[in-house]
């Protein structure tokens, strides 16, 4: 394997990791603070992408589209909170699974009804189209690099929000012991709503950001959702730091495993067997990682709950 290829795949892995982090950040807080299983979080990512596609087409500008998508995704998340999620806090996990599964089924069909079953695409902004040469003969799209940068910046902002603001303090406290926070006089219902809306907005933002490089289609959030679950379980439910570390781990391992797994196996196996085993093993790697983490640390790498 050449250095150039390794570099490209590492960047791709990083980009997947960042994307996963943006989605996982909201989800891990919803999980951690509210002890709530939200399967519909992936749908919010999809809604974000669709909103971006719609607003970009309306305004004719990528930037205006993104700017409109953020408040719209936030509003949509809050709407869902009021209509559905609010009534499920403190309920059995099963009820939450069923309700959010119903929501997935409904929303996947709804976007099909509203926007059609055919994939939509979002034009890439002129400013970020094109590629730059990372090294001799190695071009990498500017947009993807910008994506990584924006993701890292968001992670930084999130870190400051969680660690240096009052709301952030309450969120951390809530993730550790929600009943106690409530007993100390904090309106936990409002805190939940803020966390939920913010999480929905982050997922929507992630969807909007990848819209120019992926096709926007119904069900696009479903498989990413599972990866996100893997991320937050590995990181430890409720931990933003854990989500960040785990997201990068999952992104890199998944991408590099698929790219180089078969080649690495060729060192120990016959070529045909190696490519077959490699192709089988690569998509399973992150699940194996998760099983291993759960085996040794049943509450993830950065446990939050006491």
């Amino acid at each position: 394997m050449s250095t150039a290829l390794l570099l490209v795949q590492t960047l791709n892995g990083l980009q997947l990791g960042i994307l996963l982090f943006l989605i996982a950040a909201g989800l891990t807080l919803v999980f951690g603070v509210m002890d709530f299983i939200n399967l519909a979080h992936g749908v919010q990512y999809m809604i974000g992408a669709y909103l971006a596609a719609m607003f970009c087409a309306w305004t004719g500008s990528f930037w205006a589209g993104i700017a409109l998508t953020l408040p719209a995704a936030l509003a949509f998340g809050l709407l869902l909170e009021v209509l559905v999620f609010r009534h499920l806090y403190g309920r059995d996990h099963l009820d939450q699974v069923l309700a959010t599964l119903g929501l997935i089924i409904f929303l996947n069909q709804a976007v099909k009804t509203v926007w059609g079953a055919a994939p939509l695409s979002v034009p890439m902004p002129d400013l970020l189209s094109g590629s730059i040469a990372l090294m001799d003969g190695l071009l990498y799209p500017v947009y993807r690099i910008a994506l990584i940068g924006v993701g890292l910046a968001t992670a930084g902002v999130l870190y400051l929000l969680i660690n240096c603001t009052r709301v952030g303090m309450l969120v951390r406290a809530g993730a550790t012991n929600a009943p106690m926070v409530s007993a100390l006089g904090v309106d936990i219902g409002r805190l939940f709503m803020i966390v939920f809306g913010f999480g929905a907005m982050l997922a929507g933002f992630a969807g909007a950001m990848v819209a120019p490089i992926l096709s926007v289609e119904p069900g696009m959030g479903d498989n990413l959702l599972i990866l996100t679950f893997v991320v937050i379980v590995i990181g430890g439910i409720g931990s933003i730091r854990g989500a960040f570390v785990a997201a990068l781990m999952v992104g890199l391992i998944d991408t590099l495993g698929r790219a180089f797994g078969p080649q690495l196996l060729r060192l120990v196996l016959a070529p045909a067997a190696a490519s077959q085993t490699g192709r089988s093993l690569a998509p399973m790697l992150i699940y194996i990682l998760m099983a291993a983490v759960l085996f040794y640390r049943p509450s993830g790498l950065f446990p939050v709950k006491q």
Binding site: F229, P283, P298, S299
Partner: peptide, 29 residues
Amino acid sequence: VSLRASGVYYIMSTLAFGQMLYFFAVSLS
């Protein structure tokens, strides 16, 4: 493995094993 974890972690680990088998089947050319 799953039973070592509890609550949400149990749910998620069963999900992960299910996915593992799914991808295995996908790769069974």
